[in-house]
Every structure is written in C-alpha cells, then in structure tokens.
Design a protein around this nucleic acid. Structure first.
Lengths: 124, 124
DNA sequence: AACTCATGTTAGTTTTTCTTACATGGAATT
DNA sequence: AATTCCATGTAAGAAAAACTAACATGAGTT
C-alpha cells in the first residue's frame, strides 16, 4: 500500500504548480528562464514538475517578497548546494558584497511586502 | 520548507497516473465508470487525481490480476470502508457467496497472471 | 528622462484530454 | 458450437491546457 513517491519525480503539470504556489504561469516560466528550476519536459514539450520544484518555487516566492532579485536568489541557491567549501571561482568577498547589496535592497522593500500564506488554501 | 501535500489533493493529470500505475487511460476511465474511483475535475472537465486515487488504482490493478472482477472489487472496497459493523442491506451470507465465487475464479486465473512490478521503473 | 526588472497580456500553435462509438479476444453460459 | 459478457483496444472529432514569442507596463534606479 501507499506508492513510494520520490520528491524528484516529475508528476505535476504547471496548472497544479500554479495552485500549490499561487504563482502565475508567467512567473514560473520566468524563473525557469533564469535557471532557478529545471522542470522535466514531456515528449510533447510540456513542463512537468516535481515536489522539489514546488518547494524551490515557494522559496523563490519568499525571497522575492523579501526583495531579493533573480541574481541574488541564484547565488543563494548555489551557496546552499556547496555549504562546506566555498567555491573559489566566485571569490568570497564578491559573494559577500552581492549578498550585502541584496539584503539592503530587501530592507528597503520590506515595508511593502505583505507576508502571504503557504498551502493552507488547499486543505479544503 | 517542504510543502504539506494532502493525499486527497487533486494534483495529477491522467498522464502522470498512467505512468505511476502502468495502466492505460482507457482502463483508468473504465474503473471510474464503475465507480471505483472518483477523480476531481478541473473547470475544463479534465480529470485530476490524488495520491489516494493512485493507491486505489494500484489496488484495483492488483485485484484484477488476481482475477477479481469489477463487482468483486467494489464489494471489497465497501467492506474496507465499514470494517466494524457489516452493513445489513447486503446480507452477510450473500456477500460471502460473492466473495467465494470471486476467489474461485481468481484461483483459476492465477496460473496466467504474471506478477508485475510496482513503481520501481520510476526511480531513474 | 531613460533603463531595468519582474510580470501582464495577447496571438497563434501544438499537445493532451475528453466523450462516444465500434472492435476484439478470452471466459462463461447456453 | 454459438452466444454473451467483460475488460480493454482503437479511432474520430472536439475542447482544454500548455507552449513560444512578442510587445506592454509600472515601480524603482541611474
């Protein structure tokens, strides 16, 4: 009983992901364009998303609401992936500078960002 | 982190369910026709399945391979739902008779049924 | 004032899913 | 042996969903 579902399995069409994340198709495709997600494609070229993709999108949404921009999010994701040893091709100091900038901008935006819910709208 | 996914949420299009269960669209629709599943519908009338639906379909597939027919599967599902007190509108003896018949047919079929895998084909 | 960024919107196309109807092969029944 | 039943295959035509590409926009930055 209870089929094993891997969080990386491409299960969901974009419509489902829109509902789960409260993002528009435009937004989701834009984030893919900027390489923040890499959804699977069907033979017919339709995007299929995994549960991990949904998590990532929720993180993206969150960071955007905090005022972090695409580039910043990308960097932050890269950090997450290599938490042990900082990759040296982007110098540490440069990374710190970028993040400092992002965070400053984030604070400026903070006032207007209305903290908005998770998936509660789905537990009908 | 990690979005809560309810097993009853209608998330999956039929194509995904086909892959997860190794059933054809025809089979899935046929089982719905016989009321073994009740997938959600989008505004545009497309079926959307929950993880519970997938589980149910895997059970159906299993029972069919054992030789149980639609009617038998329906009854067995009804039993599962009311495990405490046997519903009296279908008499106990009648239910037992039906199930005995199914099981006999099942044994007859057993020889030809090749036990076939679960979701292993997906852990690429 | 001109730019940039994230997102909206529209158009035209392709893929996916739907319903309906008829076809089929093996089991069971007559 | 012929007929019926059952689970599934298949084909056609219609509708919905998703795709790409392009232009539009408004807030924030330079």
């Amino acid at each position: 009983m209870s089929s094993e579902i891997r969080r990386t399995m491409p299960l969901l069409p974009i419509s489902t992901v829109m509902q789960l994340t409260d993002l528009t198709a435009r937004q989701i495709r834009y984030y893919e364009e900027h390489d923040l997600i890499q959804p699977h494609r069907t033979e017919g070229n339709r995007r299929m998303f995994s549960l991990n993709d949904v998590d990532t999108l929720l993180e993206i949404k969150d960071m955007l609401e905090q005022g972090v921009n695409m580039v910043g999010i990308k960097k932050l994701f890269e950090m997450k992936k290599v938490p042990q040893v900082q990759s040296k091709d982007i110098t540490d100091s440069e990374l710190r500078r970028i993040l400092r900038e992002e965070m400053q901008q984030a604070q400026r935006m903070q006032k207007s960002s209305i903290r908005q819910g998770d998936l509660s709208r789905f537990y009908q």
